[in-house]
C-alpha cells in the first residue's frame, strides 16, 4: 500500500500568547513543531504500513525550515519525505494550498491512501484535507477516530460526528483526516534518528511539480485577509479579595445567584 501523509510545521500553541499590555503576540520561546494532529496522521500511516506492507511518504509544504519536521517524521518510521517549498507558495489560502499539495502528490505516482491531521493548529480551518481529496479525485472521510479494516479495495473506519460516530466503508484510493483518538503516536527510535540524519529529502519547487503559477500562493487564493486585530477584552470585572474564607463565602453566593436563581 502506497501511503502519503501530509504534515505541517506550526508554532507550538502552548507557547503562543498575547502580551496583555501591548496586545501583540509574544514570540519569546515559541518553538516550531509538527502540527499535533499530524503526529497522529503519521502514526496511522506507519501503523498501516507495518500491518499491510507498503511505503509511507511524508509531504510538507512550507518554508525551508520545515525540513526539520520531515526529518522527525523519518525518525518516527516514515520511509521517504518530500519538502514542497518555493517563495511562490507564500500567502496561499486553503484553495491554493490544496492545489500545490495535489500537484506534488501526483508527482509521487499511484497513491492508495492519503492521511492528514484533522486540521492544523495555526489556521484551524480543517479545509485542506477535503479540498486535497477533491483535487486528487479521491473519496474522503474526515475526523476518523478509528481505522478497523483495510483490504485492497476498501477501508472500514469510524468517523467522529457531533452526536456520536458513524461506521463508514470507503473505497480506495481515499483520503482520511484523523483526530487524536485514532492512535497514540510513537517516539523516534534510535534507528530512525540515525536514518533521519542521513536522509535525502528532496525539495520540490513550483516548476518541479508542474504548477500553474496563477494558482499558487497569494495570487491563487480567492480569500484575502483585509484586517488583523486583537480580540476585544471584556470591560468591567470585580476582583474578590480577603481571606480564603471570605472569598469562598462570596463565591458561594455568586454561584448560588447565577446558577440556581438565574
Amino acid at each position: 500500500m502506497n501511503i502519503v501523509v501530509c504534515i505541517k510545521q506550526v508554532p507550538d500553541a502552548k507557547d503562543v500568547r498575547l502580551d496583555p499590555e501591548t496586545n501583540t503576540l509574544s514570540r519569546e520561546g515559541v518553538k516550531s513543531v509538527i502540527n499535533p494532529y499530524d503526529r497522529h496522521a503519521m502514526e496511522e500511516g506507519v501503523r498501516l504500513k507495518e500491518e499491510f506492507g507498503g511505503k509511507v511518504t511524508v509531504v510538507s509544504m512550507g518554508p525551508p525550515q520545515a525540513r526539520a519536521i520531515l526529518e522527525e517524521a523519518i525518525s518516527c518510521g516514515a520511509d521517504d519525505a518530500i519538502l514542497v517549498s518555493d517563495r511562490a507558495f507564500a500567502g496561499a489560502d486553503t484553495l491554493a494550498t490544496t492545489y500545490t499539495l495535489s500537484q506534488a502528490i501526483k508527482k509521487i505516482g499511484a497513491v492508495d491512501l492519503v492521511i492528514c491531521g484533522k486540521q492544523a493548529t495555526d489556521g484551524d480551518t480543517a479545509q485542506v484535507g477535503p479540498g486535497l481529496a477533491v483535487r486528487l479525485d479521491m473519496a474522503y472521510v474526515t475526523c476518523v477516530q478509528q481505522v478497523s479494516t483495510v483490504t485492497d479495495k476498501v477501508v472500514v473506519l469510524e468517523r467522529m460526528m457531533d452526536d456520536g460516530y458513524d461506521e463508514v466503508e470507503v473505497e480506495l484510493p481515499a483520503l482520511l483526516t484523523v483526530v487524536k483518538e485514532v492512535n497514540t503516536p510513537r517516539f523516534p527510535s534510535i534507528r530512525g534518528l540515525r536514518k533521519a540524519r542521513v536522509a535525502d529529502i528532496p525539495s520540490y519547487t513550483a516548476e518541479d511539480i508542474g504548477a500553474d503559477v496563477a494558482m499558487l500562493g497569494l495570487g491563487g487564493s480567492p480569500t484575502q485577509v483585509v484586517k488583523v486585530f486583537p480580540p476585544e477584552p471584556k470591560g468591567d470585572r470585580t476582583i474578590l479579595t480577603g481571606s480564603v474564607d471570605e472569598i469562598a463565602e462570596k463565591l458561594a453566593e455568586i454561584f448560588r445567584e447565577s446558577s440556581i436563581g438565574g
Partner: peptide, 23 residues
C-alpha cells in the same frame, strides 16, 4: 461549522473554485 459542515463544505468550495472561511 459542525462535523458535517466542516467536512463537505470545503469540497463544494474547491469544486466551485471559490474561497471558504472556516469557523
Amino acid at each position: 461549522a459542525t462535523a458535517i459542515g466542516r467536512s463537505f463544505i470545503p469540497m463544494v468550495a474547491t469544486t466551485l473554485g471559490t474561497g471558504l472561511t472556516a469557523d
